[in-house]
Structures are given as C-alpha cells and as structure tokens.
C-alpha cells in the first residue's frame, strides 16, 4: 500500500468573469496516476505551468480533486472530514521562504504548527528542539527570520513542517528562489530527513541536478505524467526531456553529445566519474 496514490486525478480551474459566468475551464491535472511508497524520495519534474504545483496542493488537501481519487496514507483526499488529518500526515513547504514564516522568531514559527493541532506545551518545546536540530538550525532558534539567508529560512520552514511530525513532506520548488549555496543546504537537509528519520519526500522542482539522488522520478507536462523511472533511466532520454522543456545535467548532456558523435557510451551517464571511466575504457580498449 502506497502512502500516496493518485488514480485518474483530474483538476480543473474554472475561471469566472465578474458576473460569475464561467469564462473558461483550464485543466491543470489531466488523468494523472502516481504512487509513492513510504520512505521513498520522489522527484516530480516539470516546467512552469506543467501542473506540478497543482498536484502538490492536492497532497496537502489545499485543493480537492475534480475527478479521480487521491489517497494519502489511506485517507481519501476528496472527503472534507480528512482535511486536517491529511495536512498533519503530509506537510508542505512552499517556494517563497519569506511568505511562509509566520512568526518573528525562529522557534516560535516552528511551534506554530504544533500549537494549531493542540499539542501540549511541553511537547511543543521538545518537537521544536528536535525539528530545528534535524535541519541544523537549532543555534538560530532565537533569531529573527529576516536576518537569515534564503537557505536558512527554507530550512526553518522545513522544521516548521517537521514539528507536526508528518509521515511525508512535499516541497514545492523549495529552491527556485535560492542561490547555489542555499540550494545545496536545503537539499542536504531534505536528504538527511529522508535517510535518518525515514520521512517520505516528494520534491517538486525544475532543477535536474536536484533529482539525481532521488529514488524515483516523475516528469509532468500538461497535467499528465509523461515519463517515470529512476533518475538514470530518465536522464538517458535527453531528447524527450528537452521536448518537455527540461534540461539535463551538463555531464549527461556531454555524454549524449559524445554518443551522437559516434562514441560507444552507455545511456544516462550521471556523474563525472562515470564518464571518465567510460572514456578511459574506450581508449584502453583499443
């Protein structure tokens, strides 16, 4: 049984004019299927407007399906009675670090979620300490979020979700507004949570380098899952990825170009070491 299962998931945005008449209907999710096992690190790739953020909001019950079903940890997301249980099970981190931090002091922000779900005071403090430590932000607990870097703010946001002790965290383009250092920090924090706390991760992104270490990758375009597989399998299809308005990591692209030029290289080379080894074999094999 997967922790998240989408079957034929459809979401339509109905756009109304000022009088309330329906002006147009946009299909953001178009019969989407997806399954996540507990403890997995999943990446969902897609360009802006591919529907990936709409999907993310469904897992957190911020949006409900127009058609089809979405099951989160055995709960049907279409059923409004499940909303709060789902939000506790599947926490969400958003793109803009500034617009999701509510309090003016780091530790108070992390405590916000547990306060909302009625956790007793002593336990809130324990949870705040645990979650801040798990993302390496404990020593900043009394700082103002305004004085932190983008990567640090995003880690605070992750801690804020962790404090609700979710089984799963969805990160909706958490690094899009960060500099390279911030990106690395956030990604490292997420991987640690996945490895050490066994939290299921769904990382939504358009940066290809971030999905290299994922267990499984879904590629979305026009509200549909258009590719899925392990990172190597996905990256071996350079041309298809480019059709879906995505990049491949430079090394994979280089290997692809060399392959095209006639070198006998395997598909889906991901790291520099792999490429050098392969090139060495070609030369020594002669």
């Amino acid at each position: 049984m997967g922790i998240i299962e989408a079957k034929n998931l459809v979401h339509e945005y109905i756009i109304r004019d000022e009088e309330g008449n329906v002006e147009s209907i946009q299909t953001a999710l178009d019969h989407m299927d997806l399954k996540v096992e507990p403890g997995q690190f999943i990446a969902v790739l897609g360009h802006n407007g591919s529907g990936k953020s709409t999907f993310a909001k469904h897992i957190n019950a911020l949006l409900t399906p127009t058609e089809g079903t979405l099951i989160v940890d055995g709960m049907d997301a279409s059923d409004e009675d499940n909303t709060y249980a789902i939000r506790q099970t599947a926490g969400m981190v958003f793109q803009n670090p500034d617009n999701q931090i509510i309090a003016s002091v780091v530790q108070e922000d992390v405590g916000f979620g547990p306060e909302n779900i009625g956790v007793p005071t002593d336990e809130i403090w324990e949870r705040v300490e645990r979650s801040l430590k798990s993302v390496g932000m404990w020593k900043y607990r009394e700082h103002s979020p305004n004085k932190l870097s983008g990567g640090q703010k995003q880690r605070v946001a992750i801690a804020g979700v962790m404090a609700m002790e979710p089984k799963c965290i969805i990160l909706d383009e958490p690094t899009a507004m960060l500099d390279p250092d911030g990106r690395k920090e956030v990604l490292a924090a997420v991987h640690t949570l996945n490895r050490e706390k066994g939290v299921t991760i769904i990382l939504i992104t358009h940066y290809m380098e971030e999905v290299v270490d994922a267990d499984y990758v879904y590629v979305m375009d026009q509200g549909k899952v258009v590719m899925e597989g392990n990172p190597r399998g996905i990256f071996s299809q350079v041309d298809t990825l480019q059709e879906h308005r995505l990049d491949v990591p430079q090394i994979t692209l280089l290997a692809h170009e060399l392959q095209r030029a006639g070198l006998p290289l395997a598909d889906g080379i991901l790291t520099r070491e792999e490429l050098i080894d392969a090139l060495e074999r070609i030369v020594k094999g002669r």
Partner: peptide
C-alpha cells in the same frame, strides 16, 4: 496581496483554523 495569499495558504497547510483548540508554546 501576493504575500498575504501565500501566507494564508501556508497557514492553512499547517492546520491553522483560528483560535479554538490551539495550545500555546509559551503560555
């Protein structure tokens, strides 16, 4: 307005439903 919108969503995602049933981190 954009920030307010984002923030409302983020608060909802963290189960905020107003003052009832909330506990206090620092009573």
């Amino acid at each position: 307005f954009r920030r307010a919108n984002d923030l409302a969503l983020a608060m909802e995602a963290r189960c905020y439903v107003g003052g009832d049933g909330r506990t206090k981190m620092m009573p």
